[in-house]
Amino acid sequence: MNARIEHLVTEGTFDLDGGSWALENNVWIVGDDTECVVIDAAHNAEAILTAVGDRTLLGILSTHAHNDHIGAAGAVAAATGAPVYLHPDDRMLWEVVYPDAAPGRDLADGQRIAVAGIELQVIHTPGHSPGSVCLYAPTFGTLFSGDTLFHGGPGATGRSYSDFPTIIESITGKLLTLPADTVVNTGHGESTTIGAEAPDLPDWLARGH
C-alpha cells in the first residue's frame, strides 16, 4: 500500500454571526503518487494545488461548510475539475460563501469514498453544524474530525446552527466507539487520540458549550 496522509496548515479568517477571527486550519491530503483527495480546502488554494501537484484530485471532502473550511474549495475545484463533497444539511452555510454555485456531490452517513486503494468512511456528526461529518480511515487507524472533536474537547457550539447536546451525542455515540488508539486529525491545532479524549467527557458535560 502506497497511500499516505499529508498535512499542510493554511491561514485566514473564520467569519460568522457578524464576527471575524484569524486562525490556522489543517488541510489533510490522503492519497498516493497518482491520486488523492483533499479534506477541507481551507483559505489558500495555491498552497493546496501545489501540494496536490500533478496527481488526479478525486474530490474535495468538506467536513462542514464554515467559510474557513471551504474558502478555497471553489478555486481548487475550478483548477482541477474535482467535485466538492458536502453533507446537504450544511447547504445554508455553503450558500453564504458560494451563493451562485452548489457543491458537486453530497456526503451521507455510512458512505465510503475510495482513494489510492483505501476507503474513507463518512460519519455524520452534527453539533458544530448540522451537516458536520468526520472521515474515518480504518487502514491508517485515523479519524479526520473537522471541528467536531479536538485535542481537549468538542468543537465550539456557541454560534448559529450549532448545538452542544447534539455534538456530545455525536462524539459519544459515534466517535468514542472507535478504537482507543485511533489518531484524531483535527481541523485546527494538534492531533490527539480517541483514548486521550474519552476520559474528559464528564468535564465537557460540566462545562457545557
Results as ranks from 00 to 15, higher is better:
Leu107Trp: 04
Leu201Ser: 05
Ala3Asn: 08
Ile39Gln: 06
Gly158Ile: 04
Ala42Tyr: 00
Thr177Gln: 06
Tyr136Cys: 08
Ile29Trp: 01
Gly18Cys: 11
Leu149Phe: 05
Gly146Phe: 12
Phe164Gly: 13
Ile39Val: 15
Ser145Gln: 07
Thr56Arg: 07
Gly19Thr: 14
Arg105His: 09
Leu120His: 03
Ile113Val: 05
Arg105Ala: 12
Gly18Thr: 06
His66Asn: 13
Gly141Phe: 08
Ser160Ile: 08
Leu57Asn: 00
Thr125Lys: 06
Pro179Ala: 12
Glu6Ala: 15
Val96Leu: 15
Trp204Val: 03
Gly189Trp: 11
Gly18Asn: 12
Leu93Thr: 07
Arg159Met: 14
Ser62Ile: 01
Asp17Cys: 07
Asn26His: 01
Ile167Arg: 02
Pro179Phe: 10
Gly127Leu: 07
Pro103Asp: 00
Ala51Leu: 10
Arg105Leu: 14
Asn25Tyr: 00
Ala116Lys: 01
Ala72Pro: 05
Asn26Arg: 00
Ile39Phe: 01
Thr186His: 01
Gly141Ser: 08
Trp21Glu: 14
Thr142Ile: 08
Glu169Ala: 15
Ala42Ser: 15
Asn185Ser: 13
Val97Ile: 11
Tyr136His: 12
Ile5Ser: 06
Gly153Pro: 11
Gly155Ser: 07
Phe140Tyr: 04
Asp106Gln: 09
Thr142Trp: 02
Leu178Val: 11
Ser145Tyr: 09
Val38Ile: 15
Asp203Glu: 14
Leu58Trp: 00
Asn25Arg: 09
Ala22Leu: 07
Val183Glu: 15
Gly53Phe: 04
Leu16Cys: 09
Gly59Glu: 11
Ala75Leu: 10
Gly71Tyr: 02
Val76Lys: 01
Asp89Arg: 13
Thr192Leu: 13
Pro88Thr: 02
Glu190Ile: 03
Asp109Pro: 00
Leu93His: 09
Ser191Met: 13
Gly12Lys: 11
Phe144Gly: 12
Trp204Met: 02
Tyr136Trp: 14
Ala47Gly: 12
Gly71Cys: 04
Arg91Cys: 02
Ser132Glu: 15
Ala45Ser: 14
Asp200Tyr: 13
Pro126Gln: 10
Val76Ile: 11
Tyr161Lys: 01
Trp204Gly: 02
Pro130Ser: 06
Tyr98Glu: 03
Leu120Ala: 06
Ala206Tyr: 03
Ile48Gly: 06
Ile123Met: 09
Thr63Ala: 06
Leu49Arg: 09
Ser145Asp: 11
Asp68Arg: 00
Ile70Tyr: 00
Ser145Leu: 11
Cys36Ser: 11
Thr172Tyr: 02
Arg159Cys: 03
Asp200Thr: 10
Gly110Met: 07
Thr166His: 05
Ala101Gln: 11
Gly158His: 08
Leu8Val: 14
Val122Gln: 00
Thr192Trp: 10
Gly189Asn: 09
Ala42Asn: 11
